[in-house]
Amino acid sequence: MPAFDPEHLQRCLDEMKRRDVDVLVLGREANARYLSGATRLWLAGTRPFGPGCVVVRDRATVHLLSTTDDLVPLSREQLFPMSWNPATIAGALAAIPGVADARRVGVDGMTPLFAQLLRGLLPEAVLVDGEDLLASVRRVKSAADVGAIRAAIGVAEEALRVALSALVPGVRERDLVGAYVEATGGLGVTTPEFDAVFHVVDDDVAGNFATERVVRDGDLVVASVGVLSHGWVGRLARTWPCGKPTKAHRAAVVEWRALRNPLLEQLRPGTTVAELRTQHSAVRGVGTGDELLDDDQVLEPGMVLAARFGHEGVAGEDTFLVTESGATMLTTFPYMPA
């Protein structure tokens, strides 16, 4: 069940104070999830900016655009209703206590229409970067946050185990996606962080999508999966053989690990994200959604990172918690079949 986390709000209020921001008007679902604890209907893809969640600093309140309190752990006074009419939504926004007096307003996106409505509503207010503010708030995780991410990873790993048991000669890449999503549903989770990808390692294929391709005995398949479980991301990737494990697969994984492991030694406070990024690696933050990390971001204890490493078609991704002295791997999935 969703829960409101007062620590999240406090971190946000502290950062608003530091940046002299009076009100946040947030459209991005990951920000709304983090602040409200609400589960709203999951939709794939980007959506245009709208005032989905509002934070008023001097009243320490969170307000959410939701017609119902179902799966919304806030009081009814903290809800404002949806409308198809942008002017009506702008009116509801203005009616939130404390909004009309705001001098500096953080927003995490904008549309031409809303820019016009906000200028009419708050002609004197200065708009500042609310996405950057929330990114800095969300970057460092509490123990409870890490527990939620571990639970999400557990779902992704169990579903991946089921999907890989379907990796037999003759199966199509897209059937493996099907096996994976059915397994997450069986575990009570029906929202992905991204559409799972199962693709045969092939020099000629970029491999961003699962296709109709039939997997053959001895093929290596890269499996990339991610769930959004109770609002938290759990993701990982592995390269797995179809059919009996072969010496070739074992050798490829051994080589992959030998090349990847030096990266792990750099996972500690003080390292910059740029130092983790090579032509073979990708690094991102993980939380109530994907987190962009700039190259000059310095690792701090409490950050949770997903690091993907790929070499000659073999790819793997793990999730790590940065600790005081290094990092703890949160993913537990094996790298090759038992």
Binding site: A44, G185, G188, T190
Partner: peptide, 26 residues
């Protein structure tokens, strides 16, 4: 369970050729 229905639905759309799912099945 409701989520079992979702899971079966999602499995079948990928098998049948869907490009993606767009909304958490209700």
């Amino acid at each position: 369970r409701a989520t079992e229905l979702s899971g079966r639905f999602l499995r079948r759309i990928y098998e049948l050729g869907a490009t993606a799912n767009t909304v958490d099945p209700i």
